[in-house]
Design a protein around this nucleic acid. Structure first.
Length: 891
RNA sequence: GGGCGCGUAGCUCAGAUGGCUAGAGCACCUCCCUUACAAGGAGGGGGUCGGGGGUUCAAGUCCCUCCGCGCCCA
């Protein structure tokens, strides 16, 4: 669509006398919804489509300023691509699957999920929901998983309504008919289907292995969910006993080791030192006896043992940390586990503890938490005299579940994994190579992706021992003793998905056989929330459900997201697409930064510095808030700054006023305001259009590279110069010039305005739409992006015009204005005479525009003189005599 | 300890392949009610571009090093 054909449908202009910003958001949101302005046209072929893998925000409370920030970035790209001729597929998802929702539902309704309970079809939500006092009084009610999930839907539906309202208010050009929720049936089906396919192809597997365990949430935790926290601890020196006749480190037959976890002594299966450590080389291959428990354990060599730490010998326990797991696996050691999933010491001693003293000591630890067990163990060691010296306090990093508040333990359990290259260098290389198929914005973000994959040391753990999530779609046959055979999982048919194995019957069985010997049992675990989130492209595009849509949208064009979840969301999505479609999931990923508060600290609720988005939009207006957001460069953390929002608001108001003024010239009230390039004959008007063409080139280049901030900044700068210089220069001619000159000015102004409005449209969708509606037909957001070539053609009258004409004219006007300001006179002061000196080249450029400069300067004429540089000699009309009080008394 | 990013006016930030006296907005000062806009306009002051080396005719821009900050990881 070009600027001339859009005028065909142009209405008679309706320009308000006092345009304002108030109420634009609600009005235009309703009209856009009504007209389906952002509705995806699914007749378009893949090459004409631009599809966006929108991040589904977590529905567990409210949106914050960071959402406003990053979703605006994506929206500017969406709007640009739409105007640039692509049909934009811009769905929205809600992430209501997972722990945060589960916790809220438990607290809000006062219920607990008990997966063993049957579904109750008549269950209704407790009527005291939301009343903490009443709930506390009655206590939590146990309900089935299906009933629990129903409650999750009830609660999240409310949040999702509020989220949508906010995003609409913000002006996101989302197609609201395209939406999903990560716990809805479609997502569950996709998630289970993808898992079953991973299983069938051997990409998913289960194993009984040590895994990181959060004792509070009672669930296994994946590597991506870990974080280190610095915690105080203490090195305890323990005396291990050497075989008879071997002198130890203290010369008395003992070998000292230092450990921060003496409570795990009973779980000790070996000692380890570095192979090159000369102090311990004689001991490698021999055995020592543990203090207190008297268990004989081997002394091993391994390069992960650090000669600098403690005594250089470490105690290997099953399991104290991830290094223990590595040692255990690589050195082929026994298992002597003592901790259970509640984080307490098992009641029964592990194999190997047989001495009376050892059993007695163990009995003192049994049932204790890790914390109390440590205190007790230290006490026992003191009693036996096997604690050497006093514990030495240190501070060291300890692994935590990112949502947990107790250190992680490592327990052995049966878990499901999906291969991710953590244990397979070929797959790792393939996934790293997928990164090259995507364009990264900013490009250095790819390094984080590559480094993360390089640093993986295990596959992706996807099973979680939680309730609200997508269940693993599996059952297991029970043998004659009622024990499950995990090696023979029973899978559902894809057509039956989604299923819940805790309430759906395994194929080939009768429900009465559930839990019976010879019958079946459902897997009680759910999948990691990322196991569903990693499928957002498949879910949004209708994988296996809407092949027509899928063919037009997948693989997607853009994944916008925050940089801190490259290792989780971005990577896991790449894994899924690699396996399922043998492709990268998107052509581009755009990583946004974070919002920092004005102190440059990351904004967080706990600090009480969160500003609610609704207040912000109310106070400044959506365009103003978007302006601030769009100033945050891709990938860069940005300080919260309501000063920027005020500037954005001022810009929006200026757009209204400048448009009203510009469109006022030659308007007679019922003739559409035409743009006819043939009437644009004046050199200054043509020069302005040539410069505008350069701006269009620059903005287009920036937006093609996802640099919305640069596009906005250049457009804004150009716009202010346009209003301050060009409009001032030509307004007299546009008002009262001869017909040719006036029409040239008016048509050029309209063409410039039409162009500028479209350049601003991705950033300020409301005010630009408002102005567009005054004089043009249709929505600005469905107009074509401005074309630099068309502008250059519009400025072309067959002869050459130097775009610098516009600069020289603006400089000349500025020089005269400077003179008036210096003289402390109004800019309206008439100029009686003016001689302007400049270089011959510049004077030649200025001559065609001299009439406009003189008019804008309020000079009847301007004399020109050649010189070395720009200067003026100006005589102003004498000032009026001041008020009487300012005069010297006449006497 | 490693990787990535950052450190430019009081504040928030621009400064692509190194090149004219280092820019913008806010804040500050002066002036102007000029009939699109006073939520405006015209001007002005203010920076040894984190420190130190180096490459170059020329460095905020490239290289080295140090210091400080952030994120991710160990």
């Amino acid at each position: 669509m070009s600027h001339s054909d859009s005028s065909a449908a142009a209405p008679a202009p309706a320009i308000p006398d006092r345009p304002g910003l108030e109420g634009l958001e609600d009005r235009w949101d309703a009209i856009w919804e009504d007209r389906g302005t952002y509705r995806f046209d699914r007749t378009k072929s893949r090459s004409d489509v631009f599809s966006i893998d929108t991040p589904p925000p977590t529905v567990s409370g409210s949106l914050h300023v960071g959402h406003v920030f990053s979703y605006t970035h994506t929206d500017t790209i969406a709007r640009y691509q739409r105007m640039a001729g692509r049909e934009v597929f811009y769905p929205m998802g809600w992430d209501d699957n997972g722990l945060p929702t589960e916790r809220r539902v438990q607290n809000y309704f006062g219920v607990r999920c008990e997966p063993s309970l049957p579904h109750d079809p008549n269950f209704t939500a407790p009527d005291d929901a939301g009343d903490p006092k009443a709930i506390k009084k009655r206590g939590d009610i146990d309900i089935s998983r299906r009933n629990f999930i129903e409650l999750c839907h009830v609660l999240t539906a409310e949040d999702e309504k509020a989220f949508e309202a906010l995003f609409r208010r913000l002006g996101l050009s989302v197609d609201w008919t395209q939406h999903y929720a990560t716990i809805d049936e479609r997502c569950q089906r996709a998630s289970q289907r993808a898992f079953l396919r991973n299983l069938a192809r051997g990409e998913a597997y289960q194993v009984e292995a040590p895994s990181l365990w959060d004792v509070t949430h009672r669930t296994a935790v994946a590597q991506a969910e870990l974080e280190d926290r610095e915690r105080p601890g203490a090195y305890h020196r323990l005396a291990f006993h050497l075989p008879d006749g071997v002198a130890g480190t203290d010369g008395s037959g003992n070998l000292h080791i230092a450990t921060t976890r003496p409570e795990l002594l009973a779980a000790c299966v070996a000692l380890v030192a570095h192979p090159d450590d000369e102090r311990y080389q004689p001991l490698f291959g021999s055995t020592v006896t543990t203090p207190v428990f008297g268990v004989e354990v081997p002394v091993k060599a391994h390069e992960l043992a650090d000669p600098e730490k403690g005594t250089g010998v470490a105690m290997i326990c099953t399991f104290g940390d991830t290094t223990d797991v590595t040692w255990w696996r690589e050195l082929d050691l026994d298992v002597r586990a003592i901790l259970n999933r509640a984080g307490r010491v098992n009641p029964e001693p592990p194999p190997g503890i047989e001495t009376e003293a050892g059993l007695a000591a163990y009995a003192r630890l049994a049932g204790k938490t890790v914390f109390s067990a440590q205190a007790e163990m230290v006490e026992i060691l003191r009693e036996t005299g096997e604690l050497v010296g006093e514990p030495e306090p240190i501070s060291h990093p300890v692994k935590f579940f990112e949502k947990g508040d107790k250190p992680l333990e490592i327990v052995t359990s049966r878990q499901w994994y999906i291969r991710n290259g953590g244990r397979d260098s070929e797959l790792r290389a393939a996934l790293i190579a997928r990164g090259d198929e995507m364009q990264w914005h900013p490009s250095y973000m790819q390094t984080r992706y590559t480094n993360w994959i390089d640093g993986l040391n295990g596959d992706w753990l996807i099973s979680r021992q939680r309730f609200f999530g997508v269940p693993l779609p599996l059952w297991y046959p029970l043998d004659d003793d009622g024990e499950p055979d995990h090696n023979q999982p029973i899978v559902p048919a894809e057509a039956d998905l989604p299923i819940d194995p805790s309430s759906d019957t395994a194929p080939g069985y009768d429900e009465a056989q559930r839990g019976q010997p010879g019958g079946f049992a459902g897997d009680t675990d759910v999948m990691d929330t990322w196991a569903t989130s990693s499928l957002t492209p498949q879910i949004a595009c209708g994988w296996e459900e809407d092949e027509d849509l899928y063919g037009r949208t997948y693989p997607m064009d853009l994944r916008p997201q925050a940089h801190d979840i490259i290792r989780t969301w971005l990577f896991s999505t790449a894994v899924r697409s690699h396996f399922e479609a043998d492709t990268a999931p998107w052509g581009h990923c755009a990583l946004s930064g974070w919002i920092l508060d004005p102190d440059r600290k990351k904004m967080s609720k706990s600090k009480g510095n969160v500003v609610t988005p609704v207040d912000l939009l109310d106070q400044h207006g959506s365009d103003a808030v978007r302006y601030w957001a769009a100033n945050g460069r891709p990938g860069t953390d940005t300080a919260f700054d309501d000063g920027q929002m005020k500037i954005g608001r001022r810009l929006a108001i200026k757009v209204l006023n400048a448009s009203r003024f510009t469109l006022g010239f030659g308007a007679n009230g019922d003739t559409p305001l035409a743009i006819d390039p043939a009437t644009i004959t004046h050199p200054l008007d043509r020069a302005m259009l040539l410069k505008l063409a350069d701006l269009v080139d620059e903005a287009t280049r920036a937006l093609d590279g996802f640099d919305y901030a640069r596009a906005l900044e250049r457009t804004e700068t150009w716009f202010w110069t346009f209003t301050d210089d060009h409009v001032e220069l030509v307004k007299t001619r546009a008002y009262e010039g001869d017909e040719t000159g006036a029409e040239s000015a008016r048509h050029a102004l309209r063409l410039a305005l039409s162009t500028l409005l479209r350049l601003f449209a991705p950033f300020l969708p409301f005010v630009t739409e408002e102005v567009w509606s005054w004089w043009r037909g249709g929505s600005i957001h469905r107009q074509s992006w401005p074309s630099a070539d068309e502008l250059r053609a519009a400025a072309d009258r067959g002869d050459y015009v130097d775009p610098a004409t516009a600069d020289v004219a603006a400089d000349a006007l500025a020089e005269i204005r400077r003179h008036k300001t210096t003289e402390k006179r109004s800019l309206a002061t008439p100029v009686i005479s003016c001689t302007l000196t400049d270089t011959p080249d510049r004077l030649a450029l200025l001559r065609p525009a001299l009439g406009d400069v003189a008019a804008a300067a309020r000079a009847t004429s301007i004399d020109l003189a050649e010189g070395d540089s720009l200067s003026t000699n100006v005589a102003l009309e004498p000032a009026e005599p001041g008020p009487v009080g300012d005069q010297a008394p006449v006497d």
